[in-house]
Design a protein around this nucleic acid. Structure first.
Length: 600
RNA sequence: CGGGGCGUGGCGCAGUUUGGUAGCGCGGGUGCUUUGGGAGCACUAGGUCGCAGGUUCGAAUCCUGUCGCCCCGACCA
């Protein structure tokens, strides 16, 4: 490809819309163009990157016996209603774009494809003899994100590889799950990005075990916790750990104390000389279930700890067998709106009476109560007395007369001891999620009646797994991880071009001749090569080559008449003056050595 | 959805407080000079100042409404 024909338009200044470096560089290099919030055109250079990632994904999945196919993007509402996800995905903060067609049929634009694929598999796969099967597709997905941001990192339309496996039993599922884990390790290695695999929450997809693959980068939206020995790594949403030991509050007779104006843990501790871990804090949240049921939740947790809402949602789902559509803390305004004006906010204890909810119009009239183990383990503590400006000191769970269900809903934080080894203190890193593998189990196959005949002739729902890779997100994550002050540094395996030949001065015939000769030779040997034949000054062309991040640069310049060129490595910036033929040889060997080094 | 900020040529911005015929840098075009790290000079093209109302002799600027974009948050008890 000739740069003069590439529609290459680079920007010296980063557009104001971009915050993170990878987003800025992709815009400046002409890789992407925003069409509207969270929706981007993939320009020719980016499409080449995406195609290279795609090929790697296909090669590795095909090697594992996966079958590629293509599913529709418009999904009938019925199957989403059947799986029970329609309301959660369309109501409230649901992320599914949906519409009504001319026949008044409801349709959704696919944010993920469990329903569609499960229906199809249920029709086609009849016998255990056909199993296991692993189907995948690479195509555009639609998610109406609450807040799209960071370019391709959280966009509303993006390219994803999603795979779904079907099994006759759990053992087969677990086997495939491990195989996919292996394929993912290879894919990311071959794409030249460094990833950490972490235990994860399976979120709205549901299911049992799941693992995320994170590109570590400061701009990452997720916080991951890991132990220095690398034996434990988890998304903070999921992470469990040993909390620090609490300072013991001596035992005594429960007593009311005056704490005027000390409605926060901080103020209370400051004024009364308590430590936060001697206090039980109480939080009231409102869970919204489908069918528009609003359930007040009252949780108690040790004062120095923070609530992990994801864990809480899972706990609620598990204990109440209900789908949580939304969970949020309750503001004073919202209490008032419900006609509840007398809640002693800031002074609530775990034993707050349900009768406060009597006047509520829309909410359920009793609290569902949970206590985090950190609070449950306290033998003597301070807590709100349910009277404004008063706390209770030396409270115990028996003196309060309540001990709600004990659960793990605390947020693990860096510095905590790891569960597998107390001497390992968790450290934090930020990560960009580019892959996620799930053992779904039989959730979808059961609800969508997708079953097969097993060895004993009985109908049984499939065991399922699902496996995603954010292809467009991976491209940007790579930039986030691989760049310098001059621009992008693509790993060779996913770079839009492997080599760029720069003609320093196009008016110099010997330079042009040598450059073109090398261009054709490299091209004939299968190298993905670009030639910068623009009538620009050399400096401009060097800057552009660095910005768009081509791994190897060949400069045909002053010494062209003696057939000497300069070979420059984008990563190391090292340059060598070589005879043209030698340069070609070296490039070919460097490229093949690099590619081999990526294959584990 | 709540809070904050911003919409002025392809990109980055000034001008808005205090109303008086729209400006700078980059980029584009032409010419000359230059030619190995985003060249210099000269000329030149390109803007209904997001949109719609209103106030005014006169609106990018003031008022009302509306649309779009970006950031923080949707948690702190």
């Amino acid at each position: 490809m000739r740069v003069s024909r590439l529609m290459l338009v680079t920007l010296r200044d980063a557009p104001a819309e971009a915050e993170v470096i990878s987003h800025q560089l992709l815009l400046r290099g002409g890789y992407i163009k925003r069409v509207t919030s969270g929706i981007y055109a993939y320009m020719p250079l980016l499409l080449k990157v995406i195609k290279k990632i795609t090929s790697i994904v296909q090669e590795e999945l095909n090697a594992k016996g996966c079958l590629e196919m293509l599913l529709p993007q418009l999904h009938p509402a019925e199957i989403w209603k059947q799986s029970g996800r329609w309301d959660g995905y369309t109501a409230g903060e649901g992320i599914m774009f949906h519409l009504i067609d001319r026949q008044e049929r409801e349709l959704g634009l696919g944010p993920t494809h469990e329903e569609v694929i499960t229906k199809i598999a249920g029709d086609i796969l009849q016998s255990y003899k056909q199993l296991p099967i692993n189907l995948y597709q690479i195509q555009t997905k639609f998610r109406d994100e609450i807040r799209p941001r960071f370019g391709l990192m959280r966009s509303r339309e993006f390219i994803m590889k999603d795979a779904y496996s079907f099994h006759a039993n759990e053992k087969s599922l677990k086997h495939t799950y491990l195989e996919m884990n292996d394929a993912y390790e290879r894919i990311f290695k071959r794409c030249g990005v460094e990833t950490v695999a972490v235990d994860a929450d399976s979120g709205a997809i549901g299911g049992a075990e799941s693992r995320e693959f994170m590109v570590t980068a400061d701009a990452g939206e997720d916080l991951i916790l890991l132990s220095p020995d690398k034996k434990y790594a988890a998304n903070q949403e999921k992470a469990s750990s040993h909390p620090s030991r609490a300072n013991i509050l001596e035992k005594g007779k429960p007593k009311l104390i005056k704490t005027k104006g000390q409605s926060t843990i901080k103020d209370l501790c400051l004024e009364q000389n308590f430590l936060p871990d001697q206090v039980v804090k109480v939080i009231i949240l409102l869970a919204t279930f489908d069918n528009n049921i609003h359930q007040p939740i009252l949780i108690s947790i040790r004062g120095d700890q923070e609530l992990n809402e994801v864990k809480l949602i899972n706990v609620i789902t598990k204990h109440l067998h209900r789908n949580v559509i939304n969970l949020s803390t309750v503001s004073i305004k919202e209490f008032n709106k419900e006609g509840i004006n007398n809640i002693p906010i800031g002074y609530i204890g775990p034993d707050l009476k349900d009768s406060y909810l009597d006047k509520s119009t829309k909410w359920e009239h009793s609290f569902i109560r949970f206590v985090d183990h950190t609070a449950a383990n306290l033998k003597s503590f301070v807590c709100g007395a349910n009277i404004v400006d008063h706390h209770t000191i030396f409270a115990t769970w028996s003196s309060l007369g309540v001990l709600p269900k004990v659960v793990d809903i605390r947020k693990a934080i860096p510095g905590d001891s790891s569960l597998h080894d107390k001497t390992q203190k968790l450290i934090a890193k930020r990560g960009i999620e580019i892959g996620h593998i799930f053992q779904l189990g039989r959730k979808y196959s059961s609800s969508l009646n997708a079953s097969f005949t097993n060895e004993s002739g009985k109908q049984e729902p499939f065991w399922m797994g699902c496996y995603g890779i954010g292809v467009s997100r991976l491209a940007q994550a790579s930039v986030e991880q691989n760049h310098d002050k001059d621009g992008i540094i693509w790993p060779l395996s996913i770079a839009p071009f492997e080599v760029i030949i720069v003609i320093a001065n196009v008016k110099d015939d010997s330079q042009c001749k040598l450059a073109n000769e090398m261009y054709f030779k490299l091209r004939d040997q299968g190298v993905d090569v670009l030639i910068d034949d623009r009538a620009e000054r050399a400096g401009v062309k060097f800057k552009d080559a660095d910005l768009i991040g081509i791994p190897w640069k060949v400069i045909a310049g002053r010494d062209s008449s003696s057939r000497k060129v300069e070979l420059v490595n984008r990563t190391t910036k090292t340059s060598k003056s070589l005879d043209a033929a030698e340069a070609i040889k070296k490039l070919i060997s460097e490229i093949s050595t690099y590619k081999k080094s990526l294959l584990p």
